[in-house]
């Protein structure tokens, strides 16, 4: 197990460096000149030279990469061209809000997805199973923005149940939660897409659990149907969900970008989208780096948690 964790850590580190290299390359193929972008189009050659020298832009490219890594490790992701604030500040203001949005939607997706998956497995290849699978499959294939607008049309415009946009002044996590009538729709849109993944994964696992010897033994020794489902089927089907949780992070983030730009949710997705419109590369690449690193950490944690929870891996690989 220890050796496994060390090996995984090494791989994760290599991937983080890879992500840094990617953002670095993207930063350097951006059209135009960084100095001109910051100093303005009328900057004199002398001032550009001073700027390049100050920020190390006149050094060879590999040295610049080392400097970039050094800056990132010191929490310096550059300064936003448009907002004139450090990218780190902008991102760290928004991370807690995204934790609320992504956390709530994932939770909701799990609450809906796991029981659905088990139910489908129990009734598998029957009408209920096909109908549910078809529903999730269709929702999964429909674009996020369409779902968002249909929900707005139904629940905000037709029946005035929820709000379609956030009050722009809200910045704290508590404020977001207090504004629950605006929070519900983005959370719902995000979870709709995850439910399909979770429920069908649980379904596949549960079908295998149901067909396994330990379930037959449990039934044979007289355990009730319900107890077998809870104690054996559910537990064994939940384990792989951890991996899915770790891996589905990038897709949830991508969904969050669309949902946030529709619902005006003050998170990373909206920040990213606004900087994309203004060609504010430091913010875009800073956000990309943070999301990439978060993905790597997420799947690393998922793998380690999986290894720790599954006795076959915990004892098996020593």
């Amino acid at each position: 197990m220890t050796w496994y964790i060390i090996r995984r850590l090494g791989q994760a580190l290599a991937v983080v460096v890879g992500v840094m290299l990617m953002t670095f390359i993207l930063l350097h193929i951006e059209p135009g000149n960084t100095a001109k972008a910051v100093l303005g189009l009328k900057a004199t050659p002398a001032r550009i030279a001073i700027f390049d020298h100050t920020y190390g832009l006149d050094k060879p490219i590999y040295q610049q990469f080392i400097i970039y890594i050094d800056q990132v490790l010191h929490g310096n992701l550059g300064i936003s061209y448009q907002l004139q604030q450090p990218v780190t500040t902008l991102i760290s203001q928004r991370l807690p809000r995204d934790a609320v949005l992504l956390g709530l939607s994932t939770l909701l997706a799990l609450i809906i997805g796991i029981p659905t998956g088990i139910y489908q497995a129990v009734n598998h290849n029957q009408f209920a199973d096909d109908a549910l699978a078809g529903t999730w499959f269709t929702l999964y294939s429909a674009p996020d923005f369409l779902e968002a607008f249909l929900l707005i049309a139904l629940l905000c415009v037709q029946f005035h149940v929820f709000y379609a946009t956030f009050n722009g002044g809200i910045t704290t996590v508590g404020g977001l939660l207090a504004d629950w009538r605006a929070l519900i729709l983005p959370v719902a849109v995000l979870s709709i897409n995850s439910v399909a993944g979770f429920s069908q994964y649980v379904r596949t696992q549960a079908i295998q659990s149901l067909a396994s010897d330990y379930v037959r033994t449990a039934r044979a020794k007289g355990l009730s149907r319900r107890l077998v489902l809870y104690r054996h089927v559910l537990r064994n089907s939940l384990l792989p969900v951890i991996t899915i949780l770790g891996l589905s992070f990038p897709s949830i983030v991508a969904g969050a970008l669309i949902a946030e730009s529709i619902f005006n949710f003050p998170g990373m997705g909206l920040l990213f989208w606004q900087s994309a419109l203004e060609h504010d590369y430091p913010v875009m690449l800073g956000a990309t780096l943070v999301i990439g690193v978060a993905t790597v950490i997420g799947s690393l944690l998922a793998d380690i948690a999986y290894g720790m929870l599954d006795p076959r891996i915990r004892y098996g690989s020593n």
């Binding site: 991937v15 699978a133 295998q208 589905s248």
Partner: peptide, 18 residues
């Protein structure tokens, strides 16, 4: 068993090399 979930592993498989 359908792929929805398994294809998520496929499409967004990041660094899980278990």
């Amino acid at each position: 068993g359908r792929i929805y979930a398994r294809r998520r592993r496929l499409g967004f498989l990041s660094v899980g090399t278990r």
